Simulated assay, not measured.
Amino acid sequence: MKTIISKIRITAFLLMTIILSQKVFANAAQPGIWNAGGTVYTMLYPEDANTFKKIQMQQERIFIQLYKGFAVVKGTYVFKNTTNEHLQFKMGYPVNGIYSGGENDLNQIILDSLSQFKIKANNRWLPLFNENLSEYNEDYDNINAFSDNWKVWEMQFTPNEIQKVAVYFIVNTNEAIVRKGYNIEKRNAFIYLLESGSVWKDNIEKGNFYIQLMEGLTPKEVQGISDGFGFKFNTLHQIFSGEKHNFSPTPKDNLIVNYSKYNENFSFEKKVDQANEWFTKIDQMSQLPFETLIFSDIELGNPYKVENTLEGALPGLLTLFVIFAPFIIGLILVSILIWAIVKWIRLKKSNHHGK
Rank of each mutant, 00 (worst) to 15 (best):
L20C: 10
L331G: 09
F13S: 10
F79D: 00
A325P: 03
Q56T: 05
E264M: 07
Q58W: 06
E269P: 02
R187G: 01
F266Y: 06
H245D: 06
L310E: 08
I345P: 07
K53C: 07
T309N: 12
E154Y: 05
I191C: 02
Y262D: 02
R179D: 02
F129V: 09
D273I: 07
A340R: 05
F268M: 14
L255R: 04
L337G: 09
L106G: 05
V152C: 11
I62G: 04
G92T: 02
I298M: 07
I341K: 13
M91T: 08
N149D: 14
W344L: 15
L236P: 00
M57V: 13
K343S: 13
K270D: 14
A12D: 01
G224I: 00
D141Y: 01
I64N: 03
I329L: 11
L194P: 02
D202R: 07
A313W: 15
I341A: 14
L331S: 15
F79M: 09
G38H: 00
Y77P: 03
K252S: 11
F169P: 04
P249I: 05
N27Q: 12
K118D: 06
T82V: 12
V322N: 10
Q59N: 10
I211T: 06
Q30C: 06
S335W: 07
K23I: 13
N96Y: 02
I345F: 07
N123K: 13
G102L: 00
N203C: 09
N258R: 08
I4V: 15
L126F: 05
I345E: 10
T3N: 12
P127K: 12
D283K: 14
L331Q: 11
K349M: 14
T309V: 08
I336E: 10
L44F: 11
I110D: 09
D112N: 14
N174Y: 01
I62A: 04
K53P: 00
G316R: 12
Q30H: 11
P315S: 05
P46M: 07
S198M: 10
V165N: 00
N144G: 07
G354K: 14
